[in-house]
């Protein structure tokens, strides 16, 4: 770990100005990912600006929307009645992530900003364009069992590891940020970006911008939802594939649908075409299979992750079946 300065702020404006002043300064909240990255020499901030005392941990409703402060912790958010009653999909996704200990440290803002778990990213002796642009992608020709089947580039085939973000992408969430130029709101599906030729940049946040809250509109997806996470062990493992599925059903007909996948792309992978297809269709395995087929269009696998071409559609069908209470 490199040496760094540490300062603590109690207001979001102070946080933004402290980080904006120094090129390699970073915010720190729960630190469950950042500290690991620093210990391994993957990120080397010159200053950590501790935002834990900025009052941004409220969970509240405004009108029909749910607003979660960026510093609210994953564990308490998953247990909050406001979340479990109206947005159970989010609660399920949060509980599918990490371990209880980590969920009690990690913040909502930090969860979105966690870096990929690609082993080439984590090993500083290996090539990785995300860690060190221009060194190449270790995973492209390497051990890519955990890697992307959508939206990758020849620069980077890593996937985003967050479960929570998959649910937020499905639920039409938006992210409120404050920066040197003031506040702005980013639709969740635009928050993360695809690697393209700049895989070192994970999100569309600008320099100095701080996440202050996440808003989820109440679209009525509280009854028929399911977050399915397929992984190598039952807990504390990243997804091979995950699916956030939410349906509104009336008389065995799908009135509205939300669908997103995790573990398949550099960002939470919202499946809007499949959603559109499902609207008006009968609740049946056949409808779900057809939606999964649509969702998989354009998927391409690498040497060790061809199984995802089967597992992903199977998981979509399974998640929809559970959401629709067919199983």
């Amino acid at each position: 770990m490199n040496q760094f300065q540490y300062s603590r702020v109690t207001h979001s404006n102070a946080a933004v100005s402290a980080v904006s002043k120094e090129k390699a300064a970073m915010f720190i909240a729960g630190g469950t990912n950042l500290i690991d990255l620093m210990k391994r020499g993957i990120v080397n901030p010159t200053r950590l600006v501790d935002i834990n005392r900025v009052p941004l941990n409220e969970i509240k409703t405004e009108g029909n929307s749910l607003i979660i402060g960026a510093l609210a912790l994953n564990g308490p958010v998953a247990e909050s009645k406001l979340v479990t009653e109206k947005f159970p999909l989010l609660a399920q996704a949060l509980n599918a992530g990490a371990s209880a200990q980590i969920r009690n440290m990690a913040t909502i803002g930090g969860n979105m900003l966690q870096r990929t778990r690609c082993p080439y990213f984590y090993d500083t002796t290996m090539p990785c364009n995300k860690r060190e642009p221009g060194t190449g992608c270790g995973a492209l020709e390497g051990f890519n069992r955990m890697h992307a089947i959508f939206g990758f580039s020849d620069q980077c085939i890593a996937v985003h590891p967050s479960d929570m973000s998959v649910a937020l992408a499905a639920l039409d969430a938006s992210v409120l940020v404050i920066g040197p130029k003031g506040e702005r709101r980013i639709p969740f599906t635009d928050f993360h970006r695809l690697p393209g030729d700049k895989p070192q940049i994970d999100t569309n946040l600008q320099a100095g911008e701080l996440i202050t809250s996440v808003t989820i509109p109440d679209n009525g997806f509280n009854k028929n939802v399911h977050y399915l996470k397929v992984r190598d062990r039952t807990s504390y493992a990243f997804a091979l594939v995950s699916v956030a599925a939410a349906l509104q059903i009336e008389k065995n007909t799908i009135r509205d649908a939300r669908l997103a996948m995790g573990g398949v792309a550099h960002k939470p992978w919202r499946l809007t075409e499949a959603e559109k297809f499902l609207i008006g269709k009968p609740v049946s395995e056949a409808s779900f299979s057809e939606a999964a087929k649509i969702a998989m269009q354009g998927a391409k696998a690498f040497k060790y992750n061809t199984y995802k071409l089967t597992l992903a559609p199977n998981s979509i069908v399974q998640a929809l079946k559970v959401a629709a209470k067919l199983v």
Binding site: P119, E141, T234, S235
Partner: peptide, 25 residues
């Protein structure tokens, strides 16, 4: 425990990548 033979280095070398059973398993 998987080695990337191009480098001769382990790929799965921590408890996030090298899985041992957790209670739920």
């Amino acid at each position: 425990a998987i080695i990337d033979h191009r480098f001769g280095r382990y790929i799965t070398k921590d408890f996030a990548d090298y899985h041992v059973p957790v209670h739920a398993d």
